[in-house]
Design a protein around this nucleic acid. Sequence first.
DNA 1: TCTTTGTCAACTGTCAACAGTTGGACGGAG
DNA 2: CTCCGTCCAACTGTTGACAGTTGACAAAGA
Lengths: 231, 231
Amino acid sequence: MSDEAGAALTRDGTFSRRTEIVIRDMILDGTIPPGERLNEVALASALGISRGPLREAIQRLAGEGLLTVISHRGAFVRTFEARELDELYDMRCAFEMYAVRLICRRADDEQLGDLAAFVADTGLAMDDSNGRYPADRDFHRRLLALAGNTTLERAALDTQAQISLARSMSAQAPSRAKAALDEHQAIVDALRSREPDVAVRLVQQHLEHARSGALAALGFTDDPRKGNETP
Amino acid sequence: MSDEAGAALTRDGTFSRRTEIVIRDMILDGTIPPGERLNEVALASALGISRGPLREAIQRLAGEGLLTVISHRGAFVRTFEARELDELYDMRCAFEMYAVRLICRRADDEQLGDLAAFVADTGLAMDDSNGRYPADRDFHRRLLALAGNTTLERAALDTQAQISLARSMSAQAPSRAKAALDEHQAIVDALRSREPDVAVRLVQQHLEHARSGALAALGFTDDPRKGNETP
DNA sequence: TCTTTGTCAACTGTCAACAGTTGGACGGAG
DNA sequence: CTCCGTCCAACTGTTGACAGTTGACAAAGA
């Protein structure tokens, strides 16, 4: 039984790093839902390791904003108040608005062509399905990659992960798939025309829509300048 | 001897958290210079604790970008290549450009008046001294605080700390104090006139100047799109 | 002299046990 | 029935010891 869940971390590297990856996946998969505590002894024995490396992994994940650690009480999968989700969308906005500026300056036409092709392809895939748009995340990932700034890309992806976790706290939002796809297309068009100011404005609007949708899906009012409950 | 350097962490909280604070200060103070390894057994005994909590603190500081951890080799105070410093300035730009947008929307006249007063006061303080402008960091801190987004503020301060660490790798840059002060003043003026687009542009220019100065001070060429050496 | 290989000390990764704290269950008083 | 104080089990914080890896030094060979 000691190598049951532990089978997942039978690659190389230190226990600590492998454990970090396993737990991150469990959090983002929803295997461990927001608000749930990570019992160190139970989790460590389930992974077939001791508490030392597990605790180190927990510290790193807390630094990424996926766990909340409270002294003498334990580590909890992070929950988000309206305000926090709102702030995360600001972060995302800051990152992606600057990213498109960089892209206009640095990306070549071929890279932008690839991005356009991706949007077209995944758009078709969406039409086949029923109104969902699963490639939204990938579009933003590719966008950030094109900016050519690894540091910014990593920070933005962390923010994206936190938003994803926050959104997992609610049922599905009403599908904004078609609108999002159109907005992606418009952003790419602006990039290909090398119009940074237009692209920045479109990104801002796109993320503003996403923000409203996310806040509404979590049952929050549209402009949360005040805190909320913590279960 | 066990509580010699350890006297510094005789406040409350867990050893792990207190240690994190102590080490962060030592890094930013220059007590432990960039590139230096943290010997776990030596440091732990110097702080009067065991290696467990020390290692947890190290993991968190690595997450902040102040330490680089290499498996089986140890934790090193981070060093920065030209490219990395350049990327950090992009991050800072993204944060502060968005921050001033938020400030134009949210900060009231009194807050902006306080900021203006701060710039005026510290400007005089600078003139008394010999060309240095120590309050630059504080100005940016206050700016970020006014944006009213705790998440963004914390991330921006982390970035600021990394930049500060990177700059500590070189001797002093040629003083840009007067120019920086004027630029700060101009930014505040734009904010008080509620002209977000102007403020954003001024922030971008200000940070672009700071970027060039920092890269030059580290002996790097002005546009580092390629990597550098790692000692 | 330069390269290669074997050995070793120092250090990190990991573990199992100990100590202190927390939240809740339990029981009694009002 | 509610409220409050006590006690306890479960869990986290910390420790010291063990195991595996790394880089360097020294000896042997070309």
